[in-house]
Design a protein around this nucleic acid. Structure first.
Lengths: 153, 153
DNA sequence: ATACAACTTAAAGTCAGCTTTAAGTCAAGA
DNA sequence: TCTTGACTTAAAGCTGACTTTAAGTTGTAT
């Protein structure tokens, strides 16, 4: 069973122009063509496209994904390259998650900050406040916001 | 105590050109100027810059951050706007984290896939494999990779 | 056979978020 | 006072990831 670019684009919920762009950039060396030059995507191409989507979500550039697809096309000689790529990307994603969790803590603090300001009717409630009256889980964050990690010796 | 753009840039570990760009885009309405027109950053500007950094990490655009800074400059009348902004951004970051965790599962599966292929010396080991022999935690992922969620009725 | 929607390409356009360049100004030390 | 390094602006340039356009081709339905 084959699909045209428009059909598979609908299934993946992305614009056909994006798939054509990926093809032009060498991300889709596996797509076949009809005698007239029309792209023919097969069912097994789904998996490759899903992996591309995964690598994009992991933050990889088009260029690096192309390299990976080239490795795939080269066969078993590149297995260890591909393995270390996935290990690297896994670490990358873990550190992105950690980063977002730090960001989340600051957002939580700011939510609390504006909830209390809203109750008080003014942000002035947070001026000259006894640090002890800030909820414990926000004390570190508040301190870091006020004195960001210094860069010098 | 005041800092020039170069000094504060070094402390924040970002290029001075970026700070000038942010200023031009209206993100830094709070910076004062010397009589000669030189930007003078104060210690209390650290907090604003840290919040900008946080919002950037949360995925907000320059444009939306400018809007927030304008609200800050407008005072207590905009507290509830700012509160709902932080609530929205918090949800946003949570869903980014969930997204990355899904991505992580796929990367884990691929790591296992290539580890076993490396041991076997070939990716062919994964062809026509009994689904029961795939570790349980990967069975759903493998199925989803092969048959992505359909878009049609 | 013809119409017509969906395909094809190359090339240009768009957008965000900076970065670089050019020409000039400021301010601290010798 | 002069030099010098860091500052100023406006404007142009860059990168990545698409998107749009224009001109033409394919293939299915009538």
């Amino acid at each position: 069973m084959f699909y045209t670019v428009g059909e598979i684009a609908k299934k993946l919920n992305i614009p056909p122009s994006t798939l054509r762009y990926y093809d032009k950039e060498g991300l889709l060396p596996f797509v076949e063509r009809s005698s007239g030059g029309i792209r023919m995507f097969s069912d097994k191409d789904f998996e490759s496209l899903s992996v591309i989507e995964c690598l994009k979500k992991a933050g990889m550039s088009i260029k690096d994904i192309r390299l990976f697809m080239e490795w795939c096309a080269q066969g078993d000689a590149t297995i260890s390259d591909r393995l270390s790529l996935f290990r690297r990307q896994r670490e990358q994603v873990l550190s992105q998650i950690r980063q977002l969790e730090e960001t989340l803590e600051i957002l939580d603090y700011k939510e609390w900050y504006y909830e209390t300001a809203l109750q008080a009717g003014t942000c002035a409630i947070h001026e000259n406040t006894d640090p002890q009256k800030i909820p414990k889980r926000f004390q570190n964050i508040q301190r870091r916001l006020h004195h960001p990690p210094s860069q010098d010796p």
